[in-house]
Every structure is written in structure tokens, then in C-alpha cells.
């Protein structure tokens, strides 16, 4: 087996529980073209990659490639194997993902890669914007990668993914709502600037703490330091080492960002992303909802 590219020795990262899950733009610039390393761009905007990307980076699109086109679900093991093979990614490769919007979609893609247990997936801190700001080269040249034979590995949702029934059973344990304050209180059912999300009810899941995802990011899209993150999630929200935690947003992309922070930067062992999120909960019949700023109480169970 070829040796994996070494972790980024960056000082900021070494403070994190799993700093090896992050690399800097400088690390990527230095390791571009290394054997066993594949750079993946994953954006919200389906055309952004085509306007220019890191040389050699392959595109993985959340909507057209990671989602099942019919059922509201992700690819299955065969679909993922076919996608990886087509992209020229081997099971042994180190995959470094970056993207637009402070790496929301990159974190989402990373989370999906992990449902398939891809052994080494990392994020490039700061994403696409940081790469451009660092003066990194961009190209529109299509990457040339040989197709691979990625093995069919079953997707394992347990552990990292929560479904609505899991969340109902979870009520009373920590929930993190990473949407904007207006979505949390129910003043609106969609993100500012993202209207028409299609949720019939506004508010939040009872007892969920409101921690908008962006609090974990600096203005330049990089992650905040370990100390700053501890101050938010450990001190302010009161998450305990042994807690079983679920994060949600509206379709699971912003909460993937928070999931990454909790699982890898702070090292909480049990963190799940509820990808059904508000577009499921806010449309489901007879699930409890709390409006306003209060977290609310666990409803009595019959």
C-alpha cells in the first residue's frame, strides 16, 4: 500500500482533537500531484467548478452525484463505488475536499464519504475562497485521472446519520440547531436569501440549542481555534464529553459543517447529522415544535 500523505503539521490544527482531518491551503499547494492524494471540489453552485478549480481537482456535486435521483437519500454502495471509480479515486487515496460557502458543501461531501467509510478524507481549511485568497493557481483544464476500481462498500448510516425517528427517541439529549436565529424562532422557514424552502411550519425541535453554524467559522471561512470552539459548544451550550449529540439545519448541509466541528475538531465521540432536518421536521405531521427563542421542553410521552 502506498503511504498516505502526511498530516499537515500546522500549529492551529494540532490543537484540535483530530487535526489530521484538516489541511491548509499551503499544504495543498505543496502536495498537489502527490501519489495517493486526490483533491475534490464540492460546491453549492453546480457550475462554479467549471469556472476554475485547483489544478487536478475533481468535482463531486452534492445534488447530481451524491443524492439519489429518486428517493430522498444518498447513493448506495454500488452507486458510490461507480462514482469514485469514474472520478479516479481509490479506496486507499487520501481525499481532500474543499468548496464554496465556507466549506458547507465540502463538509457535507466529507460526511457522505464517511458514511461509506472512506478511510482518509480531509477538509481544506477555508475552502475555495481561502485558496483563491492565498494566490493559489486555478485552472479550467479538466483533470486527467485514470478510472479506478473502487470496491462496493455498504453505506453505514448508524453512528453519523440520524433519521426523524432517531430524533424523536433522542429528545431530551443534546440537539444543536445550526440555522439562523430567524429560522430557529420560526419567524421564517428558510434561510435569509434562500426563500421557498418548502417547510409548512416554522420553529425548532424542542430542547434544541441554537448555535448558527457560522459561529464555528472565521470571517475568511476557516475554522475557529479549538479554544474558541470550546467556549461555544462546551462552555456555552454545555455539551459533555459523553453526550450523544444530533445536529440539524434545513437539509443537512450546514449541519455537516457543525458535525465536522464537533466530531473532529472538538472530538465528541457520538455526533450525528440529521439530514432530513427542517425540510422534513417542519413538514411532518404531529411532531413537536417550539416557536420563539426558548429551547422548550421535552413533550410528555404517552
Amino acid at each position: 500500500m502506498t503511504q498516505r500523505p502526511a498530516a499537515d503539521p500546522n500549529e492551529k490544527f494540532s490543537d484540535y482533537a483530530h487535526g489530521e482531518k484538516l489541511v491548509s491551503t499551503a499544504w495543498v499547494a505543496e502536495h498537489l500531484g502527490d501519489d495517493g492524494l486526490v483533491i475534490v471540489e464540492s460546491d453549492e453552485d453546480v457550475l462554479l467548478y467549471e469556472t476554475g478549480h485547483i489544478p487536478g481537482a475533481v468535482k463531486v456535486d452534492w445534488h447530481t452525484e451524491l443524492n439519489d435521483p429518486v428517493t430522498r437519500d444518498y447513493l448506495d454502495g454500488e452507486g458510490f463505488a461507480a462514482l469514485m471509480s469514474k472520478k479516479g479515486i481509490s479506496r486507499e487515496d487520501t481525499v481532500v475536499i474543499y468548496g464554496d460557502k465556507s466549506n458547507w458543501w465540502a463538509a457535507y461531501a466529507l460526511w457522505v464519504f464517511e458514511l461509506f467509510g472512506h478511510p482518509d478524507v480531509r477538509l481544506m481549511d477555508g475552502g475555495r475562497a481561502a485558496w483563491i485568497a492565498s494566490g493559489g493557481e486555478m485552472t479550467t483544464d479538466a483533470p486527467k485521472r485514470e478510472t479506478t476500481e473502487y470496491p462496493v462498500v455498504d453505506r453505514v448510516d448508524a453512528g453519523s446519520r440520524a433519521f426523524m425517528t432517531d430524533v424523536l427517541d433522542h429528545l431530551g439529549k443534546p440537539l444543536i440547531d445550526v440555522r439562523s436565529p430567524e429560522e430557529y424562532t420560526g419567524a421564517r422557514t428558510h434561510m435569509p436569501d434562500y426563500p421557498e424552502e418548502g417547510a409548512l411550519r416554522g420553529g425548532h425541535i424542542p430542547t434544541a440549542a441554537s448555535v448558527p453554524w457560522a459561529r464555528a467559522a472565521n470571517d475568511d471561512g476557516t475554522f475557529r481555534s479549538r479554544d474558541e470552539l470550546e467556549a461555544i459548544y462546551t462552555d456555552e451550550v454545555g455539551l459533555d464529553r459523553n453526550d450523544d449529540i444530533i445536529a440539524y439545519c434545513r437539509i443537512g448541509e450546514r449541519s455537516s459543517h457543525t458535525w465536522f466541528v464537533l466530531r473532529y475538531l472538538l472530538g465528541y465521540e457520538s455526533v450525528r447529522n440529521y439530514d432530513g432536518s427542517w425540510t422534513e421536521w417542519g413538514n411532518a405531521v404531529r411532531v413537536p415544535i417550539v416557536k420563539g427563542e426558548d429551547r422548550g421542553e421535552v413533550p410528555g410521552r404517552a
Binding site: 453552485d45 462554479l48 464554496d100
Partner: peptide, 9 residues
């Protein structure tokens, strides 16, 4: 803006 190619499209 050019960073919004789909919208521009």
C-alpha cells in the same frame, strides 16, 4: 458576480 455562475447563466 462571477462567483455565481449558475445565477449568471
Amino acid at each position: 458576480p462571477p462567483e455565481a455562475p449558475t445565477t449568471r447563466g
